[in-house]
Design a protein around this nucleic acid. Structure first.
Length: 806
DNA sequence: CAGTGAGCGAGCTTCCGCTTGACTT
């Protein structure tokens, strides 16, 4: 047995460190936190000064007993969890749970995984900082109280299984408020004037010059008036200004910036980025991927420098130390960077390659020289008019870091590449080829994408690198927020053009407003957010986290006791919880839209048990109300009176076929025709409001034809194998399990033997049936989640496989 | 696989932050 046991948080880290330390050291990993507040109940003893009830998590039992055993055999235990609040708490929990003794326990910290850093840490051990641990306990208990007292109010007042929390509720609030800003936004139109001139450069060569008017006009009349005056005006170069400019590289990646750039440049979702990064990390290709620091180790700076020199030369090197400006950053790790700067790429999947190369470029670029530019503006005056046209261009004098990498922006509008301008001289006359005044509209605020939301949360100091991706998943899994696209709509805009002395006036059409993979609030998200803001404005405040973080800092400094801090919060918070539970009404987000012209009864929308609905009449009236579900693309917040009324036109009868009526309606899976107890989906191209009797019969017959052709053949003594035509081509089935037919095999010629052979070759087909994870649940088109039977809490733990016993 | 909009009441759901797991359409 080794004399020394070192415990770190991550197994990949343990592996690397073990190499640095040699034989006398055994390095093990705790896999993060080993214990937490009891899972059922609140896990806090309110009668006893908020005493926390800690329990070893079920999935950590094994590792804890292994650690316990190893620690008994060791002469010295080194607790080397991360140097931040959570890491300190992990060290303390280990100390307590493993029943370590202070005389043979040491706490060490390092924030980069290099041999020097680790040896230095070993030489400079310290004790566990109990104040910092207390700050973590306060954080943990506050989050538990907020989450476990707010959520049950939502179950009672809105819908079961909902959740609220310090982080997720604010994340949803951001989406909700942005959506409302967008709804309230009215586009303002201005006229932007651009021109194309013909002229001669200093060498008397004919050149073309594009320029834009500094001034924008707010009305058509002004724009027309301007063009009118341009008819007889003289244009000439008034002034040429050239100034140097420079661009500096962005700092190396943190979790948040990596997620943003991977989304913009590679189209990755936040979760996808983290999965791919995890694989690179485990393979030893990059440093740790959950970090808020932009710091690079001296080792990394040195190897970057060498790499840049060999690649581009000394003048491209500019070693920089970036400062982390992020609110509440704990900087327990380095920035995300390649482990070896001389590896420009890696082996692996294409996703891994692309992400790695992005990290490599960003890291290298961060240590390269500024790019030097020259910006030129040519000012063009117009006789008789005060306004000026400006042609602007940009030339790269020295590329510097741009040789390798340029950070993207979310804003696509300034994508127009400015380029080199012709060399001209003052006073040069210009002939207008055409001058165009084009109507432009101000832009709506953009909806958040996943990575954009992460950036905003980080800016507010809410959440941590390890929780950004899970938070984004949670608010989608709870159906507070949906990721979706918005199709472009057509918009008219006005174009006035002056050409050859004549002004033309045209209306053109543009496609605008298209959005992809953006976050939209659902009706439930809106109702929950409004309810929480009304009753718990403090917790929903964007500064709540920042404020409690200050409090935690005070605890960490030893200025206040954590229990006093929690007590102060709880005494204020809990009475509001009680009051809200008792006195507030059920929240259904009801909106009264008007009166149904046919019946004279009230038309309203609200959230029903199965999702948003429209209703004619009220329950108080003697006659029962009539209901209709909202369509998936409609929301109780924005639906209009007319749209709601329209919903009641379905189901509608559309004549008879084979002596049975046909009805059209919209169900969970979209529009369908019902006939004689059977359902026939309506193709997207058919409008359920307009589909004719003839067309409906056609659809029914088509489906029957497909059904008829479904069975290709049956095999086996009891026809237990069926070869069928499916949506994705032929396949065969046995015992409700589907099997693939290899390409090139004629399904008509399949034999029983061949099928059995194929079944044997696809052993996982039977186990594949059940989709795994929540991904499918969230991706389901259904507005209402199928009330998936709560999995019995049974211990599905895989019984110790033979390999566990040696 | 597509109706719903509530009737006994049983029992469940939930937070944030550390870490990886074993596998799919």
């Amino acid at each position: 047995m080794s004399k020394n046991l070192v415990i770190v948080e991550s197994p990949a880290k343990a592996k690397t460190i073990e190499k640095f330390l040699g034989k006398d050291y055994q390095v093990m990993s705790s896999f993060g936190h080993i214990r937490d507040l009891a899972e059922k109940g609140i896990g806090i003893d309110f009668e006893n000064n908020y005493q926390p009830q800690y329990v070893v998590s079920t999935d950590k039992k094994k590792i804890v007993s292994e650690l316990k055993k190893a620690s008994k055999d060791a002469e010295m235990v080194w607790l080397a969890s991360d140097e931040d609040r959570e890491g300190e708490a992990i060290a303390w929990h280990l100390y307590e749970e493993l029943k370590l003794k202070s005389e043979n326990t040491r706490r060490i910290v390092f924030h980069e995984i290099t041999k020097e850093a680790i040896l230095h840490a070993i030489d400079n051990p310290r004790d566990i900082d109990i104040h910092l641990v207390d700050a973590q306990q306060a954080r943990r208990i506050l989050d538990r109280i907020v989450g476990f007292e707010l959520s049950p109010i939502l179950w009672r007042k809105i819908r079961p299984s909902l959740s609220a929390g310090r982080v997720q509720s604010v994340a949803v609030r951001l989406i909700v408020e942005r959506e409302r800003e967008i709804n309230q936004f009215t586009a303002e139109a201005t006229y932007r004037v651009s021109a194309v001139f013909k002229s001669f450069d200093v060498n008397h060569k004919e050149v073309e010059l594009k320029a834009e008017l500094q001034q924008r006009f707010t009305s058509k009349e002004e724009a027309q008036d301007f063009l009118e005056k341009c008819k007889d005006a003289q244009f000439s170069v008034d002034n040429i200004v050239t100034k140097p400019a420079k661009k500096s590289p962005a700092p190396p990646f943190t979790t948040s910036t990596l997620q943003q750039e991977a989304a913009r440049k590679l189209g990755f979702s936040v979760a996808q980025t983290m999965q791919v990064a995890q694989r690179l990390y485990e393979a030893g290709k990059i440093t740790y991927m959950r970090t808020d620091s932009v710091n690079l180790s001296d080792l990394a700076l040195g190897t970057s420098k060498a790499e840049i020199i060999s690649m581009a030369g000394q003048k491209y090197v500019h070693i920089r130390k970036f400062n982390t400006k992020t609110l509440g950053a704990q900087e327990a790790h380095e920035a995300i960077r390649p482990s070896y700067m001389n590896a420009h790429t890696v082996e692996g999947s294409s996703q891994e390659k692309r992400l790695y190369e992005l990290i490599w470029k960003r890291t290298i670029a961060s240590q390269m020289s500024d790019a030097e530019l020259e910006k030129t503006s040519i000012y063009i005056s117009i006789s008789g008019i005060q306004h000026q046209f400006i042609a602007s261009g940009e030339v790269i004098v020295f590329d510097g870091f741009l040789k390798v990498y340029l950070e993207s922006t979310d804003d696509e509008s300034d994508a127009e590449n400015e380029s080199l301008l012709p060399a001209m001289k003052n006073g040069e006359k210009l002939l207008p080829e055409e001058i165009v005044a084009q109507q432009r509209f101000s832009q709506k605020p953009p909806r958040y994408g996943e990575a954009g939301l992460v950036r905003k949360l980080e800016e507010l100091g809410i959440g941590r690198p390890s929780t950004y991706a899970p938070t984004i998943s949670t608010i989608q899994n709870r159906l507070y927020v949906e990721k979706g696209d918005r199709e472009a709509y057509k918009r008219d805009f006005n174009v006035l053009k002056l050409k050859a002395g004549k002004i033309t006036d045209k209306i053109k059409i543009e496609n605008t407003g298209a959005e992809k993979s953006k976050l939209f609030p659902t009706d439930i998200g809106l109702v929950v957010t409004d309810f929480l803001i009304e009753n718990f404005p403090d917790v929903l405040n964007y500064n709540f986290t920042a404020d409690v973080e200050k409090e935690f800092d005070n605890i960490a400094d030893g200025d206040i006791k954590w229990t006093a801090s929690i007590d102060k919060f709880y005494k204020k918070f809990h009475p509001i919880v009680e009051d809200t539970m008792k006195n507030s009404e059920r929240q259904v987000g009801e909106r009264v839209l008007g009166t149904d012209p046919k019946s004279g009864r009230q038309l309203s929308v609200k959230i029903g048990k199965y999702g948003p609905l429209a209703q004619i009449g009220t329950v108080e009236e003697e006659e029962k109300p009539v209901f209709a579900s909202l369509r998936r693309d409609q929301s109780i917040e924005s639906i209009t009176f007319e749209e709601a009324l329209e919903l009641f036109k379905l189901p509608r009868q559309i004549g008879e076929f084979e002596d049975k009526v046909m009805t059209v309606a919209i169900g969970r899976f979209g529009p369908y025709i019902r006939h004689d107890g059977a359902f026939y989906s309506l193709p997207k191209t058919d409008d359920p409001m307009k589909v004719s009797t003839e067309r409906a019969i056609e659809i029914i017959e088509e489906k029957r034809e497909v059904e008829k052709n479904r069975i290709i053949q049956t095999l086996g003594a009891e026809n237990e194998i069926q070869v069928l035509n499916g949506r994705f081509g032929p396949y065969f089935t046995r015992d409700k399990v589907n099997y693939k037919i290899p390409n090139g095999t004629d399904p008509n010629l399949l034999t029983l033997e061949k099928c059995l052979e194929l079944i044997a070759a696809q052993p996982d087909a039977a186990t594949k049936k059940k989709p795994f994870g929540r991904k499918t649940a969230a991706a389901k088109p259904a507005r209402e989640k199928t009330p998936a039977k709560a999995k019995p809490k049974a211990k599905v733990k895989t019984k110790a496989k033979p390999k566990a016993k040696k």
